[in-house]
């Protein structure tokens, strides 16, 4: 085969690949078990139904990347999984498209708070107390037990950041779940939270990625940890005896958003609409222990599976809805204070 023929073949191949790529829909999520469940429930079935290939990518929630893409008008991500604060902030800052709900579905079908201006809830997740039932003789029942290093000796895992950690500290100090943000909005409340954290500081091992708490728990590095409930349920499925204490859990949504200027907006809408259908959300919740955002999916899930989900009524009873507005206002100063505190 002469060189020119080879080159021609390569060129044709490239052109073909290029074409195929243009049709692909790039969906970015946080990876891990969550992504695996999304592939099963959304990506693969969507491809079957629509013929649009879904390319799954991962990120760690860095808005810097989204901002860079939008600012330089070279958006290569079509659908993006974002957490609530980033959704609200990104919507204000113009990083995301404002959604046209006529292309997605009935707004009233969603759990309250799931249908936002720039994003649609994918699922409800919770940050809760998790522990290794093999290592602890008695089960902890609340964040108060989390602070009790005499009764439960060993290290504790907490997320390295002010968010969740300060709420947990207040609840451990006896603040009722419904009053947490009221107290935290006062300077005295913040001092109270940090004072409480001071007590536990020597025993804290900080985590940053959601995959770390189940690892630390399984290896015995920590005896208890705050953790995303889905990660714990997943480790549980793999045969590790990790359990969740729902009392004092904090729940929030992860949402789909479309980066502003995505070239595949139509396909993105189709995908989001598909992923919001109750029958597909049911499949998702069967694969990972996160609650559906579509109310119609709840009756489709059986009781036993439901007990593992943050949206189960008994699990919601003493839970706190993460206050996105609060963190939007106080996030910077509290994170700064947290950093200052943690690094001393």
């Amino acid at each position: 085969m002469s060189t020119s023929v080879k080159l021609a073949v390569v060129a044709v191949g490239l052109a073909f690949v290029g074409q195929a790529m243009a049709k692909d829909l790039t969906v970015i999520s946080f990876g891990g078990a969550n992504k695996a469940a999304q592939v099963k429930a959304y990506y693969d079935p969507f491809k079957k139904v629509s013929g649009i290939n879904v390319v799954g990518g991962e990120y760690n929630g860095e808005m810097a990347k989204v901002k860079a893409m939008v600012d330089t008008k070279s958006v290569s991500w079509d659908v993006l999984e974002v957490e609530s604060p980033e959704l609200a902030r990104g919507c204000d800052e113009g990083l995301f498209e404002k959604l046209d709900y006529s292309k997605i579905g009935n707004k009233a079908d969603f759990v309250p708070g799931a249908a936002q201006q720039c994003g649609v809830g994918i699922f409800v997740w919770s940050t809760a107390l998790a522990y290794n039932a093999d290592k602890l003789k008695t089960a902890p029942t609340s964040w108060k037990d989390f602070w009790d290093v005499k009764k439960f000796p060993g290290k504790r895992g907490l997320r390295k950041g002010a968010k969740y950690t300060l709420e947990i500290a207040l609840m451990a100090d006896g603040v009722a779940p419904k009053d947490v943000y009221k107290v935290l909005a006062t300077p005295a409340g913040v001092d109270r939270a940090f004072k409480k954290l001071d007590q536990l500081k020597p025993s804290i091992q900080w985590w940053e990625a959601g995959a770390q708490p189940p690892q630390y728990l399984a290896s015995g590095d920590v005896v208890m940890s705050s953790a995303y409930n889905g990660r714990i349920a997943d480790a549980h499925k793999e045969g590790k005896n990790l359990k969740v204490v729902w009392n004092g859990g904090m729940y929030d949504f992860d949402s789909w958003a479309i980066p502003k200027g995505s070239p595949n907006k139509d396909a993105a809408y189709k995908f989001i609409a598909f992923a919001s259908k109750p029958e597909n959300q049911k499949v998702y919740s069967q694969n990972i222990a996160y609650g559906p955002s579509n109310k119609l999916a709840v009756p489709m899930i059986d009781k036993k599976e439901m007990a593992e989900l943050p949206t189960a009524p008994q699990n919601m009873k003493d839970a706190v809805k993460v206050d996105v507005g609060f963190w939007a206002d106080y996030g910077e100063s509290l994170e700064q204070r947290f950093n200052a505190w943690a690094s001393k």
Partner: peptide, 19 residues
């Protein structure tokens, strides 16, 4: 849609400015 940037900047000066 420049409100977000503005809110972010002023929130650094006074917490709560964003809301």
């Amino acid at each position: 849609q420049t409100l977000g940037d503005l809110g972010k900047r002023l929130n650094m000066e006074v917490a709560g400015y964003r809301s």
